[in-house]
């Protein structure tokens, strides 16, 4: 039986603080251990906006706007991740539109996009 521990290995490989860049510079959001591969968390930005941070199965980090443009609700961080033609996306939990995690573009409607944010992991300071 495969134990579930090895499945989260990409996450455990990541140690340190997850940071996201806004207009005001890098913002520390959470520790890498708080991210679960395949799911997201929401972060409140200093200007009142919201970001959704995700960790995919290969250990890549992404951050896009959290507010679903189709409903106005801050829910994208609650969506499920998926892969289509090598692109990783999140599907909105409300009406299921998919957003490319790399650039925030909606895969189901070319005219719609959400913000996207550079994101990095700063190694934990000793």
């Amino acid at each position: 039986m495969t134990a579930t521990t090895d499945l989260s290995s990409p996450a455990t490989a990541l140690r340190g603080t997850v940071e996201l860049r806004t207009a005001d510079g890098w913002l520390a959001v959470c520790s890498a251990e708080e991210l679960l591969p395949g799911r997201g968390v929401a972060a409140l930005l200093p200007d009142g906006r919201q970001a959704a941070l995700f960790l995919d199965r290969s250990g890549r980090l992404y951050a896009i706007g959290n507010v679903d443009p189709f409903t106005g609700a801050g829910v994208l961080s609650h969506g499920l991740l998926g892969t289509v033609q090598d692109r990783t996306y999140v599907a909105s939990p409300l009406l299921k539109q998919r957003f490319d995690l790399a650039d925030g573009r909606c895969l189901d409607d070319d005219t719609v996009a959400v913000a996207s944010y550079p994101v990095r992991v700063e190694p934990a300071r000793a």
């Binding site: 579930t4 521990t5 499945l7 989260s8 679960l36 591969p37 395949g38 799911r39 409903t71 106005g72 609700a73 801050g74 829910v75 609650h78 969506g79 499920l80 991740l81 939990p93 409300l94």
Partner: peptide, 27 residues
């Protein structure tokens, strides 16, 4: 695992299952 929020299973669940409640239109 019997619990739907354990380990990898947590990342598979639809949002409603993930929070064990029903999401409504405003989140």
């Amino acid at each position: 695992s019997v619990h739907v929020l354990d380990g990898e299973q947590a990342a598979l669940q639809d949002t409603n299952d993930h929070f064990l409640a029903n999401m409504q239109k405003n989140g």
